[in-house]
Design a protein around this nucleic acid. Structure first.
Length: 285
DNA sequence: TATATCTCCTGCGGGC
DNA sequence: TGCCCGCAGGAGATAT
């Protein structure tokens, strides 16, 4: 599942393959892939035709390509969210279409930028850039690798909330980039159960969770991201290796790598959470 | 206003 | 073999 490290791997790939290229044509093969575009597929196609990509940027799990439109105007952002299964692939013209190909952008060097998305949670949209980010993600908080990230400010927000720490970690308006996998990893490293309340946790613990979230995502990035199957790949279709380094996620019943206790799995927010019953004591309410 | 829950979607695996 | 069901989960919409 693409979280910050996986999106960053994709962004870096796009830097080398797409930036500097002009979009010759765009084809939308599934309406859900452009559901965030107010004018629909025709609008997106019209805005992108002839645009030249000038940069590839990211905030949290959102990725965008900055582009100069064909008609003289302000730069636009091609805002991309990979959802659960989105892939941005650079393919040569004539390559066989992927089964779940949703959008095809043909570039002026003959290659194609393809958006492939099995579960259709991902999307593309064209957006205005306000300040330094697309307008529609202005509410998304900086991620731990953003120059504008301020851990003290995040701790202050957490202390002002009355909610569970894992829920807060997944709230992209508090700190962005963290998803279910890295939230579990950060909490395991911090020896804190995800149901502990943010306003009851000491500042030291909140800082530790945020530090560990940044550390685990940094390590994952170094290994090309986390892949469990073919649903996450870089622009060349290759998978990352961080899955081998996970200490919590997906390890139900296996011994905790710190104390040896059997790892548990709990249902939380309609998804699974993995933790150590000995190192991460569940709070009593 | 803040927090919690529901919904969208597809493919896979397990059970019958 | 084929059908049904649960599961995976990001984020916006809706409910409390």
């Amino acid at each position: 599942m693409p979280e910050l490290p996986e999106v960053e791997v994709v962004r870096r790939g796009l830097l080398g393959h797409v930036v500097g290229k002009r979009i010759v044509a765009v084809e939308v093969l599934h309406p859900r892939a452009v559901r965030r575009q107010l004018g629909g597929a025709a609008d997106l196609i019209g805005l992108l035709a002839g645009a030249t990509v000038t940069a590839a940027r990211r905030r949290g799990k959102y990725l965008w390509l900055e582009a100069d439109p064909a008609a003289a105007a302000d730069p636009i952002a091609i805002l991309v969210h990979l959802g659960m299964s989105g892939q941005m692939l650079v393919q040569s013209a004539g390559a066989v279409d992927e089964k779940h190909l949703r959008i095809r952008a043909t570039l002026d060097d003959g290659t194609e930028l393809r958006f492939v998305d099995q579960r259709t949670f991902g999307s593309w949209m064209v957006d205005d850039i306000v300040g330094s980010v697309p307008a529609s993600i202005a509410h998304i908080a900086p991620d731990p690798f953003d120059p504008g990230y301020d851990q003290s400010a995040v701790v202050k927000v957490l202390r002002g909330k009355h909610t569970e720490i894992k829920r807060a970690l997944l709230d992209q308006t508090v700190v962005s980039g963290v998803g279910n996998i890295y939230a579990d990893e950060a909490l395991w490293r911090s020896q804190i159960h995800g149901q502990r309340l943010t306003d009851k946790l000491p500042v030291k613990s909140l800082r530790a969770v945020l530090d560990n979230a940044a550390a685990v995502m940094s390590e994952a990035l170094d290994q090309g991201g986390t892949s469990f199957d073919a649903l996450y790949v870089n622009v060349n279709g290759q998978s990352g290796y961080f899955e081998r380094s996970l200490n919590a996620y997906g390890r139900e019943g296996k011994p905790c790598r710190r104390c040896g206790a059997a790892m548990r799995r709990e249902h939380f927010m309609n998804r699974s959470s993995f933790s150590c019953p000995r190192c991460q004591v569940r709070p009593r309410f």
